[in-house]
Design a protein around this nucleic acid. Structure first.
Lengths: 224, 224
DNA sequence: ATAGTGTTTTCGGCATGCCGAAAATTCGAG
DNA sequence: CTCGAATTTTCGGCATGCCGAAAACACTAT
């Protein structure tokens, strides 16, 4: 029998930790506090609790790491979150900038059986509307090899595989400029000193700032 | 701007009070405690809080009554609850005995905008899978005139308009015997001393106990 | 009137999670 | 090595909601 689900607060922390690791961001008390919009002292308290529960390992004054049960629980939440996002887009006409807030709440409220019906109705998809992989019901995740747009050299091209951000404004900006999942994108030139990257998407060229290029993951055909 | 939504606990109490009134059950501390599966002392505490918030009036040691703001808030929750139930049946293949538990949780998690999209997708329905009226977005509810099956005399007939219960076993029992919304039902005879009511539904006759006849609402053609 | 019964309320307590202020720790610069 | 800044933890406190035990109340029957 499936063991009971953690509290929403716990699930929020687990998903946040997983998300930071996934993006290669250091998982510190401070980054967690910022991401969860909570005070650092609250993070200390909750991390102690997570460690008690065996969901993370914690070296005081140093880092936090998910244990295997913790990773598994995080994947469960992530699966729910991403399936809900996709469902809202596919079945209820949401756009990719609207779904995150809604899914943040619903991920804690849907039952396992509901989420499996949703998955079935969507044809057991493996990507959410932002290109993020949807963990399978058994907790496995496939992370396809991609490159940050920021790291590509002029001349490189590929297609937009994933947008690593939840900020509705950035997402609307991208969609408005035709930068959506699957769009072909070619790097034309890079301005020095942290300047914008000039890219071509379809007929148009855009100068993209750091906030944007650090968030777009590109699938490059001949990787390596 | 819509004022913030009450806590889930508060919404649960409001919906419970509304539900008891709707069924003509006395709204006492005890009935509330039983319906919410909570201790009587918890009810006392929460009722005091609801009174503070102006959602109910409370005469200590006597009854609780919804104020107009309280009724309105209860209808909001009820609208969400019933739309979710219908949605699960229509779009995700749930049966009428499965939806209640799921909706109990989701009613607190769906945003107003999501619920309106759901309502639109369903064609702004006015009945949920149990025949319960779905309050409109403006808080108005229509209660169609019906009769408890228990109160009908032999010879009377009508169609099943509503099932006033959430117990999955009763609901499965009814569905299994063809007693679903819209089914024609005719009272054949009434056994005395609280005995069963014999009814005909389609080709078959059933002897229905009190638990069942007290829960079936019948629309009788020539009311009066 | 009053005793008894059942209901309701009050009271202190517990669990979860949040906070700010102050103490503890780390780590780089000098 | 030591000082100081930044981070992290500890501590006491608060809010929400739940509980059980005991006191307060209402209502019925004598």
């Amino acid at each position: 029998m499936a063991t009971k689900r953690p509290s929403s607060a716990i699930e929020d922390y687990l998903r946040a930790i997983y998300g930071l690791v996934e993006r290669g961001v250091e998982v510190s008390n401070a980054t967690l506090a910022k991401r969860l919009r909570v005070s650092p002292s609250s993070v200390s308290g909750m991390v102690a609790k997570l460690a008690d529960l065996g969901l993370v390992t914690h070296v005081p004054y140093h880092g936090v790491e998910l244990t295997e049960p913790g990773r598994r629980a995080a994947c469960d939440v992530l699966r729910r979150h991403r399936l809900i996002e996709l469902y809202l887009v596919e079945e209820l006409g949401y756009t990719w900038d609207e779904v995150h807030v809604e899914a943040d709440v619903l991920e804690h409220a849907v039952s396992d059986s509901l989420i499996e019906r949703i998955s079935a109705k969507l044809g057991d998809p493996t990507r959410d509307p932002h290109g993020d992989p949807i963990p399978a019901a058994d907790g496995s995740v496939e992370q396809p090899p991609t490159h940050l747009l920021r790291d590509l050299e002029p001349g490189a091209s590929g297609e937009v595989a994933r947008v690593w951000d939840t900020n509705p404004e950035i997402l609307r900006y991208l969609a408005h400029n035709g930068i959506t999942l699957g769009a072909r994108i070619e790097v034309l030139e890079r301005q020095p000193f942290g300047g914008p990257l000039v890219v071509r998407v379809g007929e148009r060229t855009h100068s993209l700032g750091n906030e944007v290029t650090a968030v777009l993951l590109i699938r490059v055909p001949t990787s390596q």
